[in-house]
């Protein structure tokens, strides 16, 4: 699959943020604002977790690159005590429904899987068009 680089992860995070905002508005209006806020906070937590994980992997595991120790220490501190502590506080002390937070946490993975499936489908359709000598842009 083409273009499955780090840009893909950034686009997944941006799309998840948009989905979270839409879900917050929709669920708040039609169901319960606490549930909507739970989904939004769950997604925000998932995006932050994914961001720190991405930065940590890129900082530590990029070949031919000097490791910036200060950045790595900051990222580890931000991800493990700070972010996980914030998650604990949200789950333990806030009155938000836990299933809503869990649904929000799933949004990122759902967006990533749907994006990959969409790309696969698009590539297959383009190949089918090529084999039939149809210009894929004129669908």
């Amino acid at each position: 699959m083409k273009d499955l680089g780090l840009d893909f992860i950034r686009r997944v995070m941006a799309a998840s943020a948009m989905v979270a905002m839409l879900a917050f508005l929709f669920v708040s209006v039609y169901y319960d604002w606490r549930f909507g806020l739970g989904i939004f906070i769950g997604t925000a937590w998932g995006i932050a977790n994914f961001y720190f994980l991405t930065e940590l992997v890129v900082a530590v595991f990029t070949p031919y690159q000097e490791i910036d120790r200060k950045k790595v220490v900051l990222l580890v501190l931000a991800k493990f005590p700070a972010l996980y502590g914030a998650g604990f506080l949200v789950l333990y002390y806030s009155k938000l429904p836990v299933p809503a937070v869990l649904i929000g946490f799933h949004v990122l993975f759902a967006v990533a899987v749907l994006k990959v499936l969409g790309r696969l489908l698009n590539e297959r359709l383009a190949k089918a068009d090529q084999s039939r000598n149809i210009n894929p842009t004129v669908r």
Binding site: G5, L6, N49, F50, L53, T62, G87, F105
Partner: peptide, 25 residues
């Protein structure tokens, strides 16, 4: 191919990490 491997690794790590978070929740 480090870029592509990193992306696969990041997504895999996030999915594995999610399982522990499910247990915690």
């Amino acid at each position: 191919a480090a870029g592509k491997i990193q992306v696969g690794m990041i997504i895999g790590c996030a999915l594995i990490e999610a399982l522990t978070i499910y247990a915690l929740v």
